[in-house]
Amino acid sequence: MTKSDSPVSEAEAKAAAIARAKAIAPDIAARIGSTPATTFRGNPNIFGRLVADHDEHRALLAMVEETSGDSPDRRALFDAMVAEMHAHAAAEDQALWSVVLRNPDTTHDARHAVAEHKQIDDLIEELQEADMASPGWLAQFAKLKDKYLHHIREEEQEQFVAAEEHLSDADIKHLLSVFERRKKAEKADA
């Protein structure tokens, strides 16, 4: 989804997400490859929008891995990734998972997703406190990347699918409005 809410193809959404990440450090490769297991994009008004954010996160994760030491590129990419992930998770929790919690059929998925957001926040906090130039930083970053990729794979292939089956059109419209508003506020506060 673009800001004007006009539908875009999956390839266009992925290309735009990578371009946003590349704008931070144009000389760093963004090798996210294909995500063949991620075939569900759901309703483009909310789930496609969430997956587009995930694509940007995938690109940022890959780009951070291409850096070394406490370099300006590593710092800029990591800081942008953290701000983006935090804003996305806060908006997703408020817009999607709070609505999904209402339905007993999807409560477990919502609780699981929110719990994983907290685990990811804890890993990010550890990285923020660590010395980026130390050899262990990239190893700790790899743990974050693995956890995050596991998390978004579950969301995209299981939790979003289950949630969409139980959401009304009014829910979808509400979700998009709340998501965009909350994400913008979170990024402004970052």
Rank of each mutant, 00 (worst) to 15 (best):
Ala87Ile: 09
Arg153Val: 07
Phe160Ala: 11
His57Leu: 12
Ser134Leu: 05
Ala89Arg: 09
Ala87Glu: 04
His88Ser: 09
Ala188Trp: 09
Ile24Asp: 02
Ala170His: 07
Arg49Ala: 05
Ala185Phe: 11
Glu165Cys: 03
Met81Val: 09
Met63Gln: 06
Lys173Val: 13
Ala162Lys: 11
Lys184Arg: 08
Arg49Leu: 13
Glu180Pro: 08
Ala130Met: 15
Ala37Gly: 14
Pro7Phe: 04
Pro36Cys: 01
Pro44Lys: 00
Asp146Gly: 11
Pro7Ala: 05
Asp146Ser: 12
Ala11Ile: 11
Gly42Asp: 03
Glu165Lys: 15
Ile124Lys: 01
Pro104Asp: 06
Leu127Ser: 04
Gln159Met: 15
Thr106Tyr: 00
Arg102Glu: 15
Ala59Lys: 00
Glu180His: 02
Gly42Val: 02
Ile24Gln: 00
Arg41Phe: 10
Glu10Ile: 11
Pro135Trp: 06
Asp55Ile: 04
Glu158Leu: 15
Arg74Tyr: 03
Val100Asp: 02
Ala163Asp: 05
Thr35Gly: 02
Ala83Asn: 13
Leu101Cys: 01
His112Ala: 10
Leu167Gln: 06
Ala113Pro: 14
Lys143Ser: 13
Ala130Ile: 12
Ile24Pro: 06
Glu156Ser: 14
Asp189Gln: 15
Ser6Glu: 15
Leu176Gly: 06
Pro36Ser: 01
Asp55Asn: 11
Asp131Arg: 09
Lys14Asp: 00
Leu144His: 02
Leu50Phe: 07
Asp93Ala: 10
Glu56Pro: 07
Arg31Lys: 10
Thr39Cys: 03
Gly48Asp: 00
Lys187Trp: 02
Glu84His: 08
Thr35Leu: 06
Asp171His: 11
Ala83Ser: 12
His86Val: 08
Leu96Thr: 09
Leu176Thr: 09
Asn103Arg: 04
Glu125Cys: 01
Gln94Val: 15
Pro44His: 03
His57Met: 14
Thr67Gly: 07
Asp5Trp: 07
His151Asp: 06
Glu84Met: 01
His108Trp: 08
Asp146Val: 12
His57Thr: 14
Asn45Ser: 02
Glu65Cys: 10
Arg181Lys: 13
Ser168Glu: 11
His54Asn: 08
Ala130Phe: 09
Gln157His: 09
Tyr148Asn: 03
Gln140Thr: 13
Leu127Glu: 10
Ile120Arg: 00
Ile152Asn: 12
Glu156His: 07
Leu127Lys: 08
Lys145Asp: 12
Phe160Thr: 01
Val64Glu: 01
Lys187Gln: 14
Asp5Val: 05
Arg74Met: 06
Ala16Ile: 10
Thr38Trp: 03
